[in-house]
Design a protein around this nucleic acid. Structure first.
Lengths: 194, 194
DNA sequence: CAATTATACGGAGGCACCCTCCGCTTTCAA
DNA sequence: TTGAAAGCGGAGGGTGCCTCCGTATAATTG
């Protein structure tokens, strides 16, 4: 009947999906309030769900982080695609970096999430890591190809530098500071000087 | 008799000083081995000292960190003083940044320690923060004064950028990568282009 | 060399969090 | 309707953090 996969595969249970959603909402709230440090038990409590249910859906803290912030990461990837093939490549990269910093700024807990994603030691965040990196590459490569940036600094280098700036900056008003610093870094990357 | 302070003040007990030293040695070893994540109980065990003794000497994890790495930070400050007033100011700054990255590289646990230092919420880390910052200022200011660097980026900005790079880079061979990236950043800061 | 007293020691124990495991409940599909 | 697959909840074991206080000991005093 259903045009689903092989066969003999049940639809996911309604309560399961409901709980998953409740957990994501609760986790987003807790992480926002605590800057990404809230306990998993607090998340489960807030979602009015057992701790066991939380662990079934998200076997590690990282997995929960990734799920919570996947939407934001996808948004960045979309921005990268939108910028593709139009406008000045260096300015596109600058715009992308600023958007990234801005997005991180609005999601307090996302700083830690990004740190976890970039850590790489953890299998579960592969999707986010790959998405983020390929978004960066999409914006970075054209500027290299146009001979506008030093070719010996990779998209990964840029990504980790900017995220590093965000992590190290813990005070207020860090968003403006990091935007400025990322501009400085970008200036350092340029072969043609403005 | 003793030319000590006011009076009526006892000499510190010998066993206390001995234990403090043993704790510092043990902590340095444990933090180096675990990348700064070892448990305090492991430190106490290694020092063959009770956990209570550890907490009496170092009331928080940060305090212990700070004590362990104060020596290394002092070393950086000394380097900054040595560089003072001789040679090209931009090259001095570059050298200082590389030394800083190198020092962090040899003390794996220091990465995390620096994150704690930058956090600033804890009284005890003020010394490290102030020392590190003033060392950076000592090397940074002359380059500004000579009109060689953008004056709108502060020593604090530079410090946090480089430390951020170190924190974000968790993979192997990060030392070379961060050295290169800090050069790029420095190029961005320059007003005269090489 | 006692006796005195300020200091320091150690680790038991309370608390919080992490995560697993399994008996019970709910949903799906036949 | 009903069997069983899928999901649920939370008790409980493990570990780490930190405090507290009875005991031990070094410095000081007579």
């Amino acid at each position: 009947m259903e045009a689903a996969s092989t066969k003999a595969i049940r639809r996911p249970r309604a309560d399961s999906q409901r709980n998953r959603e409740k957990l994501l909402v609760a986790a987003a709230a807790v992480f926002r309030e605590t800057g990404g440090e809230g306990t998993l038990e607090a998340v489960a409590r807030r979602a009015t769900v057992g701790i066991g249910t939380l662990y079934r859906h998200f076997p590690t803290r990282e997995a929960l982080f990734e799920a919570v912030y996947r939407r934001e990461i996808d948004q960045l990837a979309e921005l990268a695609r939108d910028l593709e093939g139009s406008g000045d490549p260096v300015e596109n990269l600058r715009g992308f970096l600023h958007a990234m910093v801005g997005l991180i700024a609005t999601k307090k807990g996302m700083i830690r999430a990004l740190a976890i994603v970039l850590d790489g030691s953890c299998e579960i965040t592969n999707y986010s890591q790959a998405t983020l990196l390929s978004a960066m590459q999409r914006v970075h490569a054209p500027a290299i190809a146009a001979g506008r940036l030093r070719p010996d600094v990779s998209a990964e280098d840029v990504l980790q530098t900017v995220v590093g700036m965000c992590i190290a900056r813990r005070d207020e008003r860090w968003e403006a500071a990091v935007s400025r610093l990322s501009d400085v870094f970008l200036d350092g990357l340029r072969i043609d000087r403005a």
